[in-house]
Amino acid sequence: MNLELKSKTAVVTGASIGIGRAIAKGLALEGVRVVAVARRAELLAELEQEVRAGGGAPIVPHVQDLVEDGAAEKLATTAIAALGSVDILVNNAGGSRPLPIDAPDRAWEEAIALNFTSYRKVAHALLPQMIERRWGRIINITGKSEPEGLNAAFAAKAAVHAWAKGLSREIGKYGITVNCIPPGRIMSEQIRRNYPEDYRKQFAEEEIPVGYWGEPEDLAALAVFLASPRARYITGTVIPVDGGLRRYQF
């Protein structure tokens, strides 16, 4: 299928490793010019070189912390200067924040800032030029809806789902879609560091119907499709990529 993505432009946050890296690479290999945002310059440089070697569209590395003051406006200005305009935003930067019940407000505020507020601010900074051109795609990489304990990131990602649904109803008339993808057990350097292979094998056999942990490319395939003109009638959704891990029916 021709995804009709050549000549499109994108911003992908959290693009140095894992899911964000796979999405940035997948878009670039489809001909999308990408501003890849992360805090580790050396990993962004490796991504740029790999995409160039594979014949993909240019990757523009951009090193930035997305929770600093004025970060969203700075990123929007930088991306538009580099690309001319931004058609696609992939909000992916974030991190798990398990907290004790007596955690201070500061810990909650930091988690909400990273996992929700940064998503909202970057999207709203880029929306005016999407609305002006009457086309855009916003894709949010979120999180599971079955928390096994107190985790500020789960609360923040639930906020993303609610915000994205409401936003989708406001901006659909401009040809802009908004969708969320909660990952299941997707392999990453953090997963490999924190979960030994024997645990991963047992968990997959007992909990994941397809029988294995996913790779970043498994999720990136959906994200690239949702970013395309082919996905014009899909908006306001939450689509898990989890090998059947979740147990709820809708």
Rank of each mutant, 00 (worst) to 15 (best):
P58A: 09
V11N: 03
E48Y: 03
Q64Y: 01
G18E: 10
G31I: 04
L47S: 06
G26F: 08
V60N: 00
A53N: 14
A41I: 00
R39I: 03
L44F: 10
R33E: 14
D65P: 10
Q64V: 06
A45V: 05
I19A: 13
I19S: 12
A41R: 14
A10P: 08
E50L: 03
V67Q: 14
A41C: 00
V35T: 09
G54A: 15
D69P: 15
S16T: 11
G56V: 04
I19G: 12
V37Q: 06
P58N: 06
V60Y: 12
E68M: 13
E46H: 05
G54L: 15
L44M: 07
A36F: 01
G56T: 02
A10M: 08
S16A: 15
S16P: 11
V12E: 05
A22M: 12
I23E: 07
I17W: 00
G54H: 06
H62A: 09
A28N: 06
K25M: 15
P61Y: 11
I59Q: 07
K25V: 13
E50C: 01
G26T: 01
R52V: 00
L66Y: 13
L44S: 08
P61R: 12
L27F: 09
D65H: 14
E48T: 15
A53F: 01
I17N: 11
L27N: 02
V63W: 11
R52Q: 14
V11W: 01
S16K: 04
E46W: 01
G20D: 12
V32Y: 11
G18L: 13
L47R: 02
G20V: 11
L44Y: 08
V63P: 11
A38W: 08
G26L: 04
L44P: 07
H62R: 12
I19V: 14
V34C: 05
L47N: 04
T13G: 08
T13S: 13
R40K: 11
I17S: 14
R39V: 07
A28H: 03
A10I: 09
A53C: 10
E30I: 00
E48D: 09
G26A: 12
A24W: 06
Q49C: 03
A45C: 00
A36V: 06
V60I: 14
V63G: 11
A41W: 00
I17Y: 05
P58Y: 00
V11A: 01
V51I: 08
R52K: 15
R52G: 13
G18P: 04
P58G: 07
L27M: 06
A10L: 03
S16F: 09
A36H: 06
L66C: 08
A28F: 05
Q49I: 00
E30S: 05
K25Q: 15
P61L: 12
I23W: 03
V35E: 07
R33I: 01
A41D: 14
R21I: 10
G54T: 05
I23R: 05
